[in-house]
Design a protein around this nucleic acid. Structure first.
Length: 477
RNA sequence: GGCCCCAUCGUCUAACGGUUAGGACACUACCCUUUCAAGGUAGCGAUACGGGUUCGAAUCCCGUUGGGGUCACCA
């Protein structure tokens, strides 16, 4: 299936908190779909709930998208022909559309208070049907008069009391909803702000969105949207509801059970490429079984209809593996060093981006999955003040009598390179009739304070002759 | 609870009526080896259950069970 016309997609996050990994997930597919057809990918901010509004949230959503390389074609930042892209700035639009529906008989003014609604809801619950709003049966002219007189009112969608509404979802069979199961949703709140349902449909239409690709949690409100499109006389877009990312217990992914803020992943030193690659495999697999692929490749082969519908568990272990793979096999050594350096700088670790840093990075890359692991495992490279753990101390004690010899030989080695250092160890082991497993450990323990460290000759080369000699001599005492 | 969606190894998934049900992560073992990793090899491990349809079902249909979502003047 290819979309012949150009596809216009969007994500519509609410600025209510941390930039969510689910937004990134949905963003990936929307961005890709638009790119594939040479269409447009819109980022619209749905900030109609003033109570939940978090001021810097919007900025952080932009940053997340930029970090991932999912830059929108139109957004509050970029602007575009269909702006403004913040619903709060489109405020005046929605009232007119809502009133248009009242005029055409598709919606009505409702005056119930929240207490009354609570009682009605409880009653409806007990009687086993959807809430019925008394205002629905008010005479339109009288209702209008009350509104004109200044009485507080909301505008509700007037849903037919019989028949059914069918939602066509690209990924599923048609979904049938009996209209009796759909309640008369509020479209315009008493404060004049639109609810999600109204604003979303109006904006998607005005912005010429052709494909609504969003999370599965929206399925049950889609019949309302379909009804709205019909009431306005607008063509409905293609709907595709993606599976919801899950916690290990299969519930909808949540802050309490998983890191859901993309900023957390940035702070841990995950690579955006790895994150994207991992996210792409949530509900989709590369047709050739390829595990590693970049955004361009994803765009080349992705087909919406191949998305699977089981709720994918967000497995941090697998994400870590992807990240390690990118570090080891995708990015160049130089690139890894540069990114690691930038990461450390952001964390107030000031190291020069020099050959020594690059050498340590090269040695450590196979030993870390994410950048956050780096400093913990490399303390002995940056300071002489590093801890010596129990195992290392035992190794030092066991080989103490060899250390003076070794210190001298290291000091006097003509060439300070891994190869010659290695040769020296070989020669010395042979001379003493010892195994390498006997001569190397005390030195390793002395210079690193831990047995968990890189190849010894290479590590010594990276450390430099002076530090090595000093540390070995110190341990020999 | 009503409505809706979903269902292959622990996890992500492949299979588009015919395969010893494949791969990846994780786990285990072995190899490599100066430690730890990385890498290599192997192992463990699944079609939720019950009925149909069919020569033949993981695949199609029905039911059951299980999981999830949703029932706001939040999105």
């Amino acid at each position: 299936m290819l979309f012949p016309m150009s596809v216009v997609t969007r994500i519509a996050p609410s600025p209510t908190g941390d930039p969510h990994v689910g937004t990134a997930y949905i963003g990936l597919f929307n961005h890709t779909l638009a790119q594939q057809s040479g269409g447009r990918f819109i980022l619209r901010i749905e900030d109609t709930d003033r109570n939940r509004y978090v001021p810097d949230s919007e900025k952080r959503i932009f940053q997340m998208m930029a970090w991932l390389g999912l830059t929108p074609d139109e957004s509050p930042l970029q602007g575009g022909p269909n702006g403004p892209y913040r619903q709060s700035e489109r405020f005046s639009l929605y009232g007119d559309y809502a009133r248009q529906l009242v005029a055409s008989g598709h919606a009505y003014y409702a005056f119930e208070t929240s207490d009354e609604l609570a009682a009605l809801r409880e009653q409806a619950q007990q009687e086993g049907h959807v809430i019925a709003i008394p205002s629905r049966d008010l005479d339109p002219a009288q209702a209008q008069a009350r509104v004109d007189a200044g009485e507080a009112a909301v505008i509700r969608l007037k849903v037919d009391r019989d028949g059914e509404t069918v939602v066509n979802d690209l990924l599923r069979d048609p979904i049938h909803f009996a209209n009796t199961e759909i309640d008369d949703k509020v479209l315009l709140k008493a404060d004049g702000f639109p609810t999600y349902h109204l604003a979303n449909v109006v904006d998607d239409h005005l912005m010429e969105v052709t494909h609504v690709v969003r999370a599965e949690e929206w399925i049950t409100s889609t019949p309302i949207h379909v009804l709205l499109y019909r009431a306005f006389g607008w063509a409905e877009p293609v709907f595709a509801h993606m599976p919801l990312l899950r916690n290990a217990d299969k519930s909808k992914i949540s802050k309490r059970k998983n890191p859901t803020s993309v900023e957390w992943y940035q702070q841990q030193g995950y690579l955006p490429e790895a994150m994207l690659n991992f996210l792409a495999t949530m509900g989709w697999t590369h047709p050739e079984g390829q595990e590693l692929f970049d955004l361009a490749e994803f765009q080349r082969v992705f087909r919406l209809e191949d998305v699977t519908l089981g709720g994918p568990v967000f497995d941090l272990a697998k994400l870590r593996w992807y990240n390690g793979k990118y570090l080891r096999e995708v990015l160049s050594e130089d690139e890894v060093a540069r990114r690691l350096h930038a990461f450390l700088a952001q964390n107030k670790v000031d190291l020069p981006l020099d050959d020594s840093f690059r050498a340590v990075t090269r040695l450590m890359t196979p030993r870390i999955d994410v950048f956050a692991d780096f400093m913990d495992k490399t303390a002995y490279f940056w300071s002489d003040d590093y801890p010596t753990d129990e195992k290392a101390q035992k190794a030092i004690d066991a080989g103490k009598e060899l250390l003076p010899d070794l210190a001298a030989k290291l000091k006097n080695l003509p060439v300070w390179e891994a190869a010659s250092i290695k040769q020296m160890f070989h020669d010395y082991a042979e001379e003493k009739g010892l195994k390498m497993g006997k001569v190397m450990p005390p030195v390793r323990a002395a210079v690193a304070g831990t047995m968990e460290s890189p190849d010894l000759p290479e590590m010594l080369e990276a450390l430099g002759r002076e530090r090595v000699a000093a540390r070995v001599e110190k341990a020999a005492r």
